[in-house]
Write a protein that binds this DNA or RNA. Structure first.
Lengths: 338, 338
DNA sequence: CTGAAAGCGCTTACAG
DNA sequence: CTGAAAGCGCTTACAG
């Protein structure tokens, strides 16, 4: 099961075995054959740990996401996995649940794994959480999010544009009173989308905006979010003056929960209130009121993140880059009355 | 960054450092303090590769699923991750896409990682794919699926019971002509559900059953499945004699796709046809026709799989166990007319 | 193109 | 409770 056994069987040195099996270094055809035959014969199975220890670097990249249960996150993760596999790299996926302590734990784990690089949707926009990675010399790309200071490469949706698309449509449908349904506003998507909404609302006479979100850490887990966010948002919004007529939801799960609560309150969509959101989801087209959303090109986001990461690995000193990916507006019925 | 540096700073041996930091072996309080202080001071970060190489076993377990983009799969994976983390184990998640070659590749990868155990939803029910794991001495639990011969521990839904619940309801609603919407029938859930449907249909006079599935390997990826399965199933079913009035779908994505196609064909649900399925999904309650399903307790399935795996690790020779978890019937509107 | 040899950072009998 | 020393399975300058 080790190079030594193969070396003996093939009557070569372990160095030669390594050169053949790792694909690095020139070996004569004749010896190569013998090594390959011996490896086959012994049904040799390598030790990634030995290789990693010796090279001080694993053939693995890390991926820290908020929660892979979210459909768009799962889609990005699949895309990252495929792109990593194409390059011969394994992928280590971790869920932070927007929890800084968990994020720190997983960052430490991945450093101890000596991953060749890390793609992360950081729980905050502060660089400090990522500092240990820099000290460990591990390249980082942020996905779906970015940092306040551009000290890493980033790939994310053009949130400003996406929000604009949604708001334009709602304004065109006559809406003036908005509710922003967000989770933590410490992370990029919610913060950027909320900021854009604020700016737009400010520019429209008599328009209002309330923030109907959850406290940090309250939206842990899809099923929990599904249960809690709708009732919380609905209670807040229905007691506001003026009451919002348009709900803009930061993701598909929150949207589903909010819509269910509004319907339960007896409100009709879109006659009484509009409900739109970011992220498409299978089934949104089949809802009793089909859901208008801006969709993220999740596959492309994942692919670009991997591409950027490997470019960074290849040239560690190149200037940092931020790629903003354009959203797709999917007009269905939930955006409101004329 | 290594034990040697800590050992020097704390004026102890590397053996003592190891005993303190790995938590194994008795060390005097005084020395323990010194080691901990030195590790802190040097902001020490361990090498999992070194530990794994030395112990010939990683503090990691593997999880091979069909496709984590499926909502119920993601939910199980999260549950497995949490249960593994509780025991101090990292988790390595791989997607096989029901592809035997990919599955083999990932099994090899996890063997080379020297994982302490593997939880897998195998792409077939044959034991042979798992044989390399036995040779490598890696304990295995199958999740959501089982093998033809009970040579491993298994945790899965009670598919017979689940199918019975769905079929009883449809029969009560007057349906006699059924379409089974399945993916590959090589894997457990589809096979067991289909078999149960066959048996039930056989026992009801004049009842018919058609299999409206996809060829093996055709259902790769959620978005692809979503696009292709509905049209394929609809085309087949609408040309059948007699035409099915009830569609039983093996998972939430297929159900969504089939429902969309049927509606597009002008059929009303449930007045013209009933559509029910396995696996609940966020939003099913908000569909224009809310969807009747049997839900899987995905969290429990994941938790039980980890529990079984660690019991197997602790006692490798105990008899194999298969846990059948009961389904939950969620009656909504799509199950049909009276 | 080839091999001898050192060494990556841990753990673990073994002896005391 | 403690330390010296071997060794897990690879890779990689180095010398030829």
């Amino acid at each position: 099961m080790t190079y030594l056994e193969i070396a003996r069987m093939a009557d070569v040195s372990t160095a030669t075995v390594s050169r053949v099996l790792s694909g690095a270094g020139a070996v004569s055809d004749e010896r190569r054959e013998r090594v390959l035959a011996a490896a086959q014969e012994l049904s040799y199975r390598g030790s990634r740990a030995a290789r990693t220890l010796r090279r001080q670097k694993a053939d693995t990249i890390g991926l820290i996401v908020s929660d892979i249960e979210y459909p768009s996150v799962a889609s990005m993760a699949r895309s990252v996995e495929n792109a990593a596999a194409e390059r011969g790299f394994a992928l280590n996926i971790c869920n932070s649940d927007e929890d800084l302590a968990k994020e720190r734990k997983y960052i430490n784990l991945l450093i101890e794994e000596r991953v060749a690089g890390l793609i992360i949707s950081p729980a905050t926009e502060s660089y400090s959480a990522l500092e240990p990675l820099e000290r460990a010399g591990i390249p980082v790309v942020t996905l779906d999010r970015r940092l306040q200071d551009a000290r890493v490469d980033s790939v994310l949706l053009d949130n400003q544009k996406a929000t604009q698309l949604l708001m334009d449509d709602l304004l065109r449908h006559g809406h003036r009173h908005f509710a922003a349904v967000v989770g933590t506003t410490v992370a990029t998507p919610s913060r950027e989308r909320l900021e854009t909404m604020r700016a737009i609302v400010k520019s429209v006479p008599d328009a209002t905006l309330i923030i109907a979100g959850s406290k940090l850490g309250e939206t842990i887990g899809v099923s929990h979010t599904l249960e809690t966010i709708g009732p919380a948002v609905t209670a807040l919004a229905l007691s506001a003056h003026p009451q919002p007529t348009a709900y803009v939801c930061v993701n598909a799960i929150m949207l589903t929960s909010v819509m269910a609560s509004l319907i339960q309150e007896g409100l009709r969509i879109p006659q009484d209130v509009a409900v739109v959101g970011f992220d498409d989801m299978p089934g949104f087209a089949l809802f009793q009121t089909p859901v208008t959303v801006v969709a993220q090109p999740t596959q492309e986001l994942g692919r670009l993140a991997v591409q950027l990461l490997f470019e960074r690995i290849a040239s560690p000193t190149r200037p940092h880059e931020t790629i903003l990916v354009p959203p797709t507006f999917v007009a269905r019925a939930s955006c409101g009355h004329e």
